[in-house]
Nucleic acid binder design. Sequence first.
DNA 1: TGTTAGCACTCATATCAATCGAGTGCTAAT
DNA 2: ATTAGCACTCGATTGATATGAGTGCTAACA
Lengths: 341, 341
Amino acid sequence: MISERQLRILEAIISDFIDTAQPVGSRTISKKYPLGVSSATIRNEMADLEELGYLEQPHTSSGRVPSDLGYRLYVDSMVNFHSIGIDEKEIIQSMLRNRIIEASDLAKQAAKLLSEFTNLVAIVTIPKFNKCKLANLKLIKVSDTRVLLIMVTDTGIVKNIQLAMSYTDQFILDKVSDTMLSFLSGETIEKIDVRSILKLKDKLQNLGTFVDYLIPILRDALKSLNGTEQYAEGLSHILSIQEFADSEKAKVIFDFLRDPKNLEIFLDEISSDQLSIKIGSEIGIDSLDACSIISSTYKVDGKSDGKIIVLGPKRMDYGNVVSIVNYISNTLSDVFSGINL
Amino acid sequence: MISERQLRILEAIISDFIDTAQPVGSRTISKKYPLGVSSATIRNEMADLEELGYLEQPHTSSGRVPSDLGYRLYVDSMVNFHSIGIDEKEIIQSMLRNRIIEASDLAKQAAKLLSEFTNLVAIVTIPKFNKCKLANLKLIKVSDTRVLLIMVTDTGIVKNIQLAMSYTDQFILDKVSDTMLSFLSGETIEKIDVRSILKLKDKLQNLGTFVDYLIPILRDALKSLNGTEQYAEGLSHILSIQEFADSEKAKVIFDFLRDPKNLEIFLDEISSDQLSIKIGSEIGIDSLDACSIISSTYKVDGKSDGKIIVLGPKRMDYGNVVSIVNYISNTLSDVFSGINL
DNA sequence: TGTTAGCACTCATATCAATCGAGTGCTAAT
DNA sequence: ATTAGCACTCGATTGATATGAGTGCTAACA
């Protein structure tokens, strides 16, 4: 078992390391932190902490560096998750409530705020469109060769897809979209497949040819709705972080984040009901071994959630980041739920 | 005046430097390139080329490095702008003609191809929406609180903007949008201002209250259409380039590119009718002094153009990049012009 | 028994001189 | 005009040496 004193020493070491990025030695701790014991004692405790797996030594005769386990303990039992200041709150509120009504803009704005307040990389997803229920659907002719398919979810998110069609009569389009809506309304969008679209044929037998023409186009359009839309901001902050001063190391992170699919797997795994902190190897992704990820979810009307994540070096100010993630996550829930008032 | 031999020596130096990123010396040239003269002769010529401003010497007793002027001469009179291979052409054709009908997707795809083929950063803009002429306009109710404003340009680009409105009757919306279209059709979108919208009031006097309500909302929506939409791809390639191995240097580029406004100024300046190569200081932007930019434009139906740019280190394969930019630019013109057939 | 002073030891980092070698400019011979 | 030759420059490499921050261990102490 770990003693109270060891805990305080570990805390001092991690704080110091977060500040300085340098392996920390026993003398530094005894001088900078009022623990009331000599460096020799700390030295002994540090040896024990290393044996317990909370610290690591880059090489003999260098100071100690926290291990993933050390950070874990630090986060679980030492970090002070204070609430953010009133000023920050006001800025966030005004930026997110400032007449934004597109889900994507809102996510982008939230990611921007997150990355500015944390100086780290922030990613915000919007609720998986696929999982939402269809509330409205319209086909609008925009030109002789194009039709706009508009879908609105019950959570108020609007999605437009352009369809290339050479057969576009608004009267027919209205008829088709009304009919589709009548039997698809309330369905989650992922459930809308060829089979359900085929009902169109039954209901609109007089438009058989048109429906035959439309179905493959619709199918392709719906297929394109897979995947989570991610909005990442602050990527360049990576480049200011000591751990990634070498471009090659930064590139690993960039390359990972470039393909949204990479993160999607991770996003699907994180629990959807509370804030999560993953440290280094806990993330389970080799290229992110040097990072920590703090993630949270927000809900729209209590359902169907979007995700917020902040990615940075393990050596980050967990207390601060957590409180910002929390606040923005809550604000986003509110704003999203309010959008379709 | 510069002699033929000096030209050939300069060419050899620049080729070698592009390959190796190392200052090149006279012996290297005399051994690697069959110029038929000794290193001493080359040495003399190099001294002259330096005096003429085409070469620079990082320090006495190091090899020479091309100056911006040197690159300029190289590009103007030595680079072989061959056409790209048939295989590349096929890939580009198939990727860009593969049933993409959204301008933004097309631009994104083109940027991706560019960056993959050049291993550099690529940015593609879509024709400035503002400068296009309005061809169609519709207001669609999507929920009790939201209306979708759809605008189609004569170049076939579709733009949707959501409007927050608490007064949404589709019958009225149809009336309003029909009326608006009747006197705005053919106008460039940037010309649509409050004054022109006010005509609505004259024409729809029975809907005065609604029009009063709508006007400020429309004005805000139209204001949001300023600016060029840019799609950048391959940013992470920066991190593989020797010149930017130091994260701090890469960050300068990233920070510059992060804000589309920065590039917009530059984009507005480049001539709109042919391929342009800007080298280092020619770009006129301090943070890009170590870079070269190759840019081109594509036309949609001979009008209203979008831009293509590739950004990399001065030490790039100009011949190759130029031919790729050219080919993609032409293809994009074709595809864009064909979209609204 | 826990704490601490003291000390030998380790090892990355800094320092400095010596050397190397790629490159130059200049001169004199071809 | 070209080139061989040579002295010279100067960054990079090497290696020996010192520095110092850090450790672990032991023995003395409270």
